[in-house]
């Protein structure tokens, strides 16, 4: 009896291993394809053979040497700069807003929350054109500050998951310290934040990544100013019809290089990410 149980468990585990392997192959193959293409010697997006006939490293080196048109290293720096500032500002804002909704009770709190929920649901594209002209009226036209501002302002509506996380923290602690005479600001900075490492890391990670991934808004703001581009816009430009033949393999190389730091970040902070999002999304 016990033996057959063990055997059936072995069989199920075996099946699971097979399924996982097959899935892993499916999931990884596009990425392997990207890697192969980044070493392809022939130009163009379309080749008649499965594997390239010539292999080369020049796609990578040219990203850093041929910079007069597409300045990859500069884009990298731009994006990094924007990402760092966005990360700091929007993490602060999100945590402030979430704490406020989770712990503070004030008039029209519910109204504010519902309004935030509703505002987040308008499709953003129409507003982008208006945002562009507002930024222009403020004199922030084609600048990195404008991107930081807009990314951070969008973040103010993303209080949902952090608020859920804060809701789960025991209230007894901060109530006790308020009775002891601590201000609410002290409670936030000295008690809540130190207890919320997973959600802090989660928000920081997602807001750090946003500038690396957004291509549509950045391209509307930056237009033809290539030197101000972020990574995503620049890479996207490489795939435009007239650049495709010349730049496709370099696009692949560039994409591989961008993915490396993001992958490392993700793998390092995976645990926090899971804890943060799982904690936050379970409580509405």
């Amino acid at each position: 009896m016990k033996k057959s149980y063990k055997r059936s468990r072995k069989i199920t585990n075996g099946i699971i291993y097979i399924i996982l392997t097959v899935m892993a192959i499916f999931w990884l193959s596009p990425i392997v394809w990207l890697l192969i293409r980044s070493f392809q010697g022939e130009k163009g997006a379309w080749i008649t053979t499965l594997l390239p006939k010539q292999w080369t490293l020049s796609n990578y080196t040219r990203l850093f040497t041929q910079t007069d048109m597409f300045n990859y290293p500069l884009w990298f720096l731009n994006t990094f700069k924007i990402a760092v500032f966005t990360c700091i500002i929007s993490t602060l804002l999100i945590l402030m807003v979430s704490y406020c909704y989770s712990r503070l009770r004030f008039k029209s709190r519910k109204a504010f929350m519902n309004l935030g929920l509703v505002l987040g649901m308008f499709p953003g594209f129409m507003t982008m054109i208006a945002i562009y002209h507002i930024l222009k009226a403020f004199g922030l036209y084609q600048s990195h500050i404008s991107l930081i501002l807009v990314y951070s302002s969008g973040a103010c509506l993303a209080y949902f998951i952090p608020k859920g996380f804060f809701d789960m923290l025991p209230r007894s602690m901060d109530e006790a310290s308020i009775i002891d005479g601590a201000t609410r600001s002290q409670v936030f900075w000295k008690i809540i934040i130190p207890m919320s490492k997973p959600i802090v890391v989660y928000t920081a990670l997602t807001s750090f990544l946003a500038p690396w991934l957004d291509f549509i808004f950045a391209s509307i703001i930056m237009k033809d100013n290539y030197d101000k581009y972020t990574m995503a816009v620049g890479l996207f430009k490489m795939l435009e019809r007239e650049n495709l033949y010349e730049y496709f393999t370099r696009f692949c190389a560039g994409a591989v290089l961008v993915s490396i730091p993001i992958t490392i970040l993700f793998i390092c902070f995976q645990g926090y990410y899971v804890e943060g999002v799982a904690g936050g999304s379970t409580k509405g």
Binding site: E42, G44, W46, T48, L244, Y245
Partner: peptide, 14 residues
């Protein structure tokens, strides 16, 4: 059929 990259990639081969 296909976009221009098909032509630039495949001319002479296929």
């Amino acid at each position: 059929g296909g976009d221009q990259s098909v032509l630039t990639g495949g001319m002479g081969d296929s």
